[in-house]
Simulated assay, not measured.
Amino acid sequence: MGMSGAGGGGWQSRRSRRRGGAAVMSEINVTPMVDVMLVLLIIFMVAAPLLTVGVPLDLPQTDAKAVEQDREPLVISINNKGQVYLQDAEIPVEELVPKLQAIAKAGYEERIFVRGDRTVDYGTVMKVMGRLSGAGFKRVALVSEVEQGS
């Protein structure tokens, strides 16, 4: 009446089959990990160009060559409303030079890029450039986009 028989399929018989039978599979299934990594790769490839510049500007176009550089420059942006940004933070024009002097690692030899919107008043860009030049910064450059052929 009990399950003590040899072929009864009880607890004892299952346990003995595992010991003597096939080994437990201990390999890691990497397919889900590869799927997750591919999804992350696609997300980062799409998001990376969006993270390059914090201040949206419509830059003028020119056919000048790109400047070779060894490290990341300081970027001053002037949007179409005339607001001035140091990197991604808005800053009053009067505080621009003291902030630059405080954060410039190479002193007055620090590379500074000025990005001005295509529609911004020329006088506003010249006021920023004049302050930088008057403060003694020597490596100031204007940034533009590559000109698209017609």
Rank of each mutant, 00 (worst) to 15 (best):
M1K: 09
S4T: 09
G5E: 06
G5H: 14
G9L: 04
G9C: 01
G9T: 04
R14Q: 14
R15H: 08
S16H: 13
R17V: 07
R18E: 08
A23I: 02
V24S: 06
S26C: 06
S26G: 12
E27H: 06
I28L: 07
V30Y: 13
P32G: 01
P32L: 01
V36G: 07
L38E: 05
L40G: 11
L40R: 05
F44E: 07
L50V: 09
L51G: 08
V53S: 10
P56D: 03
L59G: 03
Q61E: 15
D63T: 09
A66N: 13
E68S: 15
Q69G: 14
Q69Y: 15
Q69V: 15
V75T: 09
I78V: 15
N80F: 12
G82Q: 04
Q87M: 12
Q87R: 03
D88F: 06
I91Y: 05
P92T: 13
L96Q: 02
V97D: 06
L100I: 04
A104R: 00
G107W: 03
Y108W: 02
Y108H: 05
V114F: 07
R115G: 13
R115H: 13
D117H: 02
D117S: 04
R118D: 10
T119R: 05
Y122L: 14
K127R: 10
G130E: 06
R131H: 11
F137G: 00
V140L: 01
V140K: 00
A141W: 04
L142K: 01
V143L: 06
S144K: 06
E145A: 13
E145Y: 11
